[in-house]
């Protein structure tokens, strides 16, 4: 195996154009190195991109927020723009591994690794995230809900690098949350993770728009449009939440694994959904601070 360091996005792109599928991009390495050391991946070339500064950081302009692919979880959890505009993402990022993982692990890495349990995926899905992928051929944009194709399988082509993620900020009269279930209070791979973003009418009464997404309930993180539709027009009443939960059960296929049983994951769905709806509505009404 070879190791090369890229200092700019152009360099990454030209290396990928040359080497393509034999290269694996290495940012913080918290997934890539583990997989490499376990023998799960055997790239011919590691391209170290961690120090490409232009790919890190958060920008807010024209009603969109752009997140550089190399922005670390630690930055996401602390950044004031993220905390205001995509609070669920900050909440999720603060729950990825321990401080050591958050300090070097990046959002781009989390998405491109495409773990079914990727914590940053659900809050980005509910923020209508769009990914910018760059190659020698140019730049294209892929909505996040079309990016994940399966477990560790994405729409990123081997010659592309994920450069940034554009998200829609939380509108007014809206609330957002990411609820992560683990056995312990930290250091967990999500047993289930659920993100919700609800927009209420001006009276703070009726749900006018709903976004829901889960991880660890299927081979890939999922948006849940059927369940979303069942919440729109509701006041978050138990019947509506129950109907939406049923819709989630129909679109997901949780499994038994070493962390939890499928039956538990299914049991969690209606409870997490009810809790998420309650929290989002309270936050939308300003009755409760967003996660801090």
């Amino acid at each position: 195996m070879d190791f090369r360091r890229a200092g700019t996005t152009d360099e990454i792109v030209s290396i990928l154009a040359e080497v393509g599928p034999d290269a694996t991009l290495l940012a913080g390495g918290t997934d890539v190195m583990v997989q490499y050391l376990r023998g799960e991946i055997a790239p011919k070339l590691l391209v170290h991109i961690e120090q490409v500064d232009e790919l890190a950081g958060v920008d807010e302009a024209d009603g969109r927020v752009d997140i550089g692919a190399l922005t670390t979880h630690l930055t996401l959890s602390e950044d004031p723009v993220i905390r205001r505009t995509v609070p669920g993402l900050a909440e999720a990022a603060s729950q990825v591994g321990g401080h050591q993982t958050q300090a070097v692990g990046t959002v781009g890495g989390n998405l491109c690794n495409a773990s079914p349990a990727a914590d940053t995926a659900p809050p980005l899905l509910v923020a209508d995230a769009e990914l910018r992928l760059r190659s020698a051929a140019g730049t294209r944009t892929v909505p996040l809900d079309r990016f994940f194709l399966g477990r560790r399988h994405t729409a990123r082509r081997p010659d592309e690098v994920l450069t940034s993620i554009a998200v829609r900020p939380l509108p007014s009269h809206a609330g957002e949350t990411y609820l992560k279930v683990g056995r312990r209070g930290a250091m967990e791979v999500a047993i289930v993770g659920l993100a919700a973003r609800l927009v209420l009418d001006d009276d703070g009464d009726v749900v006018t728009d709903a976004r829901l997404a889960v991880c660890s309930m299927a081979p890939r993180p999922l948006r849940l449009p059927d369940a979303e539709r069942l919440l729109v027009g509701s006041r978050g009443e138990p019947e509506a939440v129950a109907a939406a939960a049923d819709a989630v059960q129909e679109t997901t296929e949780p499994i038994d694994d070493a962390r939890a049983r499928a039956a538990y994951r299914r049991r969690l769905v209606p409870r997490l959904l009810a809790e998420a709806v309650r929290l989002c509505m309270r936050r939308a009404r300003g009755e409760e601070e967003s996660w801090s």
Binding site: R183, R184, G185, A186, M187, E188, V189, A258, R259
Partner: peptide
């Protein structure tokens, strides 16, 4: 089969 799934209590637990 690892210290990820074999969960030892952490400082917050």
């Amino acid at each position: 089969r690892s210290l990820e799934t074999y969960r030892l209590p952490t400082a917050v637990d």
